[in-house]
Amino acid sequence: MGSVEQPVSMPMQAERRFRRREWSRNRTYYYLIIPVVIYFILIRYMPLYFLQVAFREFRVTRPISQTDWVGFRHFTDLFRTPMFGNALWNTIRISFAKLLFGFPAPIILALLLNEIRSSGFKRFTQSVLYLPHFISWVVIAGIMYNLLSPDLGIINNVIRSMGGEAVYFMGEDRWYVPLLVSSSIWKESGWGTIIYLATISRIDPDLYESAMLDGANRFQRMIRITLPLISDVIVVLLILRLGNVLTVGFEQIMAIGNPGSLPGRHVLDTFTYAVGLRNGRYGIATAAGLFKSLVAGLMIYTSDRFAKSLGQRGLI
């Protein structure tokens, strides 16, 4: 028996000794990182526990474990709420409009920026194009209200001076999605070029030279060399974007759409805020959030599969 025990206990002892040495050598690292770990558990992971509000009859006065389970009732209530259907539809159409027009914008812009020959002008243009990324949506909405005002806004001044009739851009529903899409492009497409430009700058210049010797013109080089070589990055960003297909920018919608006074303009995130925090219906609001996360996960998975089936590298 003893001869059997020996080989088992030896490595165990050695391991314990090794761990003790590891602990004493890296002690300071552990002391420094423990607050970070506590922060993440308490602030970022603890909320996951409260997702069960979506399946419970939540009471503010009671600890969550003492409230009753209600199964999927909040979900069935949610899908029967007309405001939710409207918010979901808004989210989808805004998201697809942004995907269709907003996603290609930085790619085109990066390809064009890459064609600028004067490096001084290029750098200047880039820093101007990046600027709006740092401006908050509230400020942008404020500026838009001024520029687009039906009374004395400059856009309507121009329309009137050409004999047209003033348009109430910020109030009319048919301008809602176009304004969201164009303001997103204005704010983020410059910033979005960074990653594409970086990828382009790592393309081997020899490729361009040999293409030129073969008589390829500038446009052909752009389409046949640059574009295929950044397609990996495009696919990864597209998959990530599809995963966020139900996230259309809470702050932008709040500031530009003003769903507080125009309830027809709600999207999922503003719906969750209005129903959950303003009306105190936590169950339904949490169910809406959970629904959104499930769709997001599903979208990432499907689009990744799809990209792989097309022979791209994919993400996961």
């Binding site: 603890m46 909320p47 409260f50 805020y273 959030g289 959104k292």
Partner: peptide, 11 residues
């Protein structure tokens, strides 16, 4: 992984 607004609020 984002827990969403309401769980964060309760936390």
């Amino acid at each position: 992984v984002h827990p969403g607004l309401i769980p964060t609020y309760i936390n």
